[in-house]
Design a protein around this nucleic acid. Structure first.
Length: 426
RNA sequence: GGCGCCGUGGCCGAGUGGCUAGGCAGCGGCCUGCAAAGCCGCGUACAGCGGUUCGAUUCCGCUCGGCGCCUCCA
């Protein structure tokens, strides 16, 4: 099993089963409903974990929730930031549950990791890798010569990472980034720390949550491509400067595009997971994600979603009857072992479909959480279909056609098959 | 300006130095009372220009175009 890693710029082999394979994928900041792009790391992470387990790996998946930061304060306005974060966390949990892929092994929250974060920052300070100024603590970028190794940024060309537009005069170096931020007026959520009241910076929480649950060395760190710099670069710097290997493989999923651009809250071109689920259903959405390689961008549009839906229907049709074809499971393994190539895997599934290898097909789709539903038509529809069947037997095709139209008007399609009929929702 | 990704047939989308990807849509056919589903067949694609090579969609260079990051962002 190998995966393309941003750090090494090539596919990196995973140790053989049972591993372990410990995975940490960055989750969302909770201050609004998650959009579909936010869901990609979750979906890819769950697929990967489930697949690794199926392959005999001891896989652990940690997916964090950032429930404290500037955006949350801002979005909460005069309301309670903690309340907003709690509500948005529930939204997110509902959303990911509804994908039907199961849940990560751990869903840590930044606000529940504060003591570990404080301890980690203290260690950085004690090692001379960080310094505090009036209640703020910054990581000293110059103390870590390998800084920039992940994003291939040259340290001297990196612009300042100031949270506000004005460079902070308190920093030794504009590239230094905050580990701890002193509480400011209007910020209603804070913790006591050796540096005074405040709250953790964005990057440190991920280093700490990952190491807290997975240890100082783990196999895979994932997240959106937009997090490579500065977020992941900073995580890597914090942890490695303390001598921890931290993650070995860094996977970055491609951006979800909508109206030609990256879907993002700040652009406003957003479709929430909730809306997409309601409109298209979870299986179509999953199939949609399957159509593109995880590392590539993917376009969300009516057309691409309709194509996904059409594919899903062909699978559903195939699984309405048991086939007696044979499928080669290793074909699917080959596709997934090589960088988790789901479009390639999809082609294998279609091969099984046309071959009538329904056992393998069902098992293969199940891996991705796609479980074609049974179609149980309501009694009223069944009665119409029975009536139509009788009419057809008697050669009364005018009535048969009229009944079909009635059934269609009620949202169902009748298909005449060898031993009767099938009812499929339209 | 710096770092990086990508451009495959109407659409989506893998992949490879020479051998059919696959799907969706379309067209033709089989099947069907008519349909639907399914099956068979068809389009003969790799942005452009150079270069390397016996041979390039696949390697190198340039051009054009799209995208991401460098600021919060999955």
């Amino acid at each position: 099993m190998r995966l393309y890693s941003t750090l090494q710029r090539q596919k990196v082999e995973l140790p053989p089963p049972p591993g372990p394979v410990r995975m940490y994928f960055c989750g969302p900041t909770v201050y609004a409903r998650a959009h579909i792009g936010n869901a990609r790391p979750f979906v890819v992470g769950m697929w990967l974990r489930n697949w690794l387990r199926a392959r005999g790996y001891d896989a652990t998946f940690v997916h964090n929730i950032t429930d404290i930061n500037d955006k949350i304060y801002k979005a909460a306005g005069v309301g309670s930031s903690a309340e907003l974060a709690a509500r948005a966390t529930e939204w997110y949990l509902e959303d990911i549950r509804d994908f039907g892929l199961g849940l990560p092994d751990h869903l840590p929250k930044a606000t529940e990791t504060i003591p570990q974060i404080v301890a980690f920052i203290s260690e950085l300070i004690a090692s001379g890798l960080a310094y505090d100024v009036d209640g703020d603590v910054y990581f000293r970028v110059s103390s870590y010569p390998a800084y920039g190794q992940l994003s291939r940024q040259r340290v001297d060309e990196v612009e300042g990472q100031d949270e506000e537009d004005v460079p902070s005069p308190r920093k030794e170096d504009s590239r230094d980034f905050a580990l701890w931020k002193a509480n400011k007026p209007g910020e209603d959520t804070w913790w006591e720390s050796p540096w005074g009241r405040g709250r953790p910076g964005w990057h440190i929480e991920c280093s700490v949550m990952a190491e807290d649950l997975l240890g100082p060395v783990f196999e895979i760190h994932g997240g959106g491509l937009d997090l490579v710099f500065p977020h992941h670069e900073n995580e890597l710097a914090q942890s490695r400067s303390l001598g921890h290997e931290f993650a070995h493989i860094w996977t970055h999923n491609g951006m979800l595009r909508f109206t030609g651009e990256k879907m993002s809250k700040s652009e406003g071109n957003v479709v929430t997971v909730r809306d997409a689920l309601d409109r298209w259903g979870r299986e179509t959405l999953l199939l949609f994600f399957l159509t593109a390689h995880w590392s590539k961008p993917i376009d969300f549009s009516d057309e691409t979603m309709q194509q996904a839906r059409a594919q899903l229907e062909t699978f559903q049709n195939a699984l309405m009857n048991e086939g007696d074809g044979e499928g080669n499971w290793s074909d699917l393994e080959a596709a997934l072992e090589d960088d988790f190539n789901t479009p390639d895997a999809l082609a294998v599934l279609h091969g099984w479909r046309t071959a009538g290898a329904t056992d393998e097909l069902r098992r293969g789709l199940e891996l991705f959480g796609i479980r074609p539903s049974r179609f149980d038509a309501p009694d009223a529809i069944r009665e119409l279909a029975e009536e139509r069947r009788t009419a057809r037997r008697e050669g009364n095709f005018a009535d048969a056609d009229r009944l079909r139209e009635e059934i269609e008007a009620a949202g169902w399609e009748v298909r005449d098959v060898a031993d009767g009929y099938q009812l499929v929702p339209r």
